[in-house]
């Protein structure tokens, strides 16, 4: 295990150190007193664990390819930006564009996220990105989404409130979003379907929920299908009819 006190250190120094350790085979690294350093854990390939104590800066885990990052605090914009594989666990909130263009891996957010979370996620065969948000999300959740899974749990929210904003899944053409709590058709983009969730569908996401609650050490309430809504694209060719050929 390696420990780095990051106070006053530029992100370039922190990331270079982490990469150097990683390349020598050190797979447990603790970053103490992180405060706004960007790109923590960027491009790290293979499994291993990085603990971030403090508030990391933008693009946490950018292009990451297998590592696990646990943030003991909040994350800023772009956590998991264009991430390929691995896991990011945030024990607080995250901000805008969490999981932008994610291609694989998992992002667990204990609290809430900002605007445009999960925008343009995509999946292919076994590469199946998943974002689970414990609290609420801002507008444009899952915009342009092309694949993968987003779960919004709406924990701690008053009954009858919606845990997501407006223009949900605008331009979505692949993947699925499950939202626990109120969701109306007015909140979703054009060409997007919403439906109630079946027992079977709930069972399908149960594994992910168990993994999420285990990683974050929280007890989830008993979920009932009727508490949930599922958001899905009505077409994989949203632009198919827009053009004259």
């Amino acid at each position: 295990m390696k420990l780095l006190d990051c106070r006053g250190k530029h992100y370039r120094e922190v990331n270079a150190m982490v990469e150097a350790w990683w390349n020598t085979g050190e797979r447990k690294i603790i970053l103490e007193r992180i405060n706004g350093q960007r790109y923590i854990g960027r491009t790290l390939s293979g499994s291993g664990y990085i603990e971030v104590r403090g508030t990391p800066g933008d693009d946490l885990g950018m292009f990451m390819d297998g590592a696990t990052i646990r943030v003991k605090g909040n994350a800023q914009d772009g956590a998991g930006n264009t991430m390929n594989a691995g896991k990011i666990i945030v024990e607080g909130d995250a901000r805008d564009i969490t999981g932008l263009s994610m291609r694989g891996g998992k992002i667990w957010i204990k609290g809430s996220v900002g605007y445009r979370a999960g925008i343009h996620m995509k999946s292919y065969e076994d590469d199946y990105p998943i974002i689970v948000v414990g609290g609420t999300t801002g507008d444009f959740l899952g915009e342009y989404m092309a694949g993968g899974l987003i779960l919004v749990l709406g924990l701690g929210l008053d009954k009858g409130c919606s845990p997501v904003g407006k223009f949900i899944a605008s331009g979505m053409h692949g993947g699925t979003i499950f939202i626990r709590g109120k969701l109306t058709e007015k909140q979703v983009g054009k060409g997007i379907g919403i439906e109630e969730v079946s027992e079977e569908q709930l069972r399908e996401i149960n594994n992910y929920l168990e993994e999420y609650s285990g990683d974050l050490k929280i007890n989830l309430p008993d979920f009932l299908p009727k508490d949930w809504m599922r958001v899905f694209p009505l077409t994989t060719r949203p632009y198919g009819r827009l053009y004259a050929y």
Binding site: D59, D77, G78, N81, I97, L100, R103, R116, I119, H120, K122, S123, Y124, D127, E143, Y144, A146, G147, G171, H173, G174, T236, R237, P238, Y239, G240
Partner: peptide, 28 residues
């Protein structure tokens, strides 16, 4: 989608036959 063949889909990591959309702005 017409041009998203199996090989292109593997390179882009999107399903065969679905539109590959590049939004107008980078959202970051």
């Amino acid at each position: 989608g017409e041009k998203v063949s199996p090989d292109v889909s593997r390179t882009r990591k999107i399903p065969v036959g679905s539109d590959a959309i590049s939004p107008a702005p980078h959202h970051d």
